[in-house]
Amino acid sequence: MSSGMYVDGIKALASSNSTPKSLARPDQSASVDNPFCGDRIDLDTNIEKGRLTALAHEVRGCMLCHASANGLGESAIGLSREEIDFVSAELTAMLKGEKHNVWPPAGWEFLALFEPVAGHKSRHGCVTLPFKALLEALA
């Protein structure tokens, strides 16, 4: 059942416009597709001293992907690639039902909204796609 997947928190996050669609002078960019559904995210970043200083993205995807991307945009600024990789791994572990260290990670409380997605394997990629794109941009 999808109950819990489309709660107000997810809907609000998906429709928030807090993250710009592109940066004027990105340091690194990535364009990543979810081959299963065709969702796509184009993402720009600015980095200073190994830490993310600005993030922009344009999502062509479902509500879960939009919500995940917007939450990421609001929470990832100031972090290093390693710190974002840690959060991404925690998110993936939660979705797969595997053991994770801290849930939700500090500063990433919005990720708890995605817990109902864990039971829907075909939708995991919708939530993780923005993280995959950001890690690719920061690689």
Partner: peptide, 9 residues
């Protein structure tokens, strides 16, 4: 309304 959300519900 994205089709995946539509079909999920």
């Amino acid at each position: 309304c994205h089709s995946h959300d539509v079909c999920q519900i």
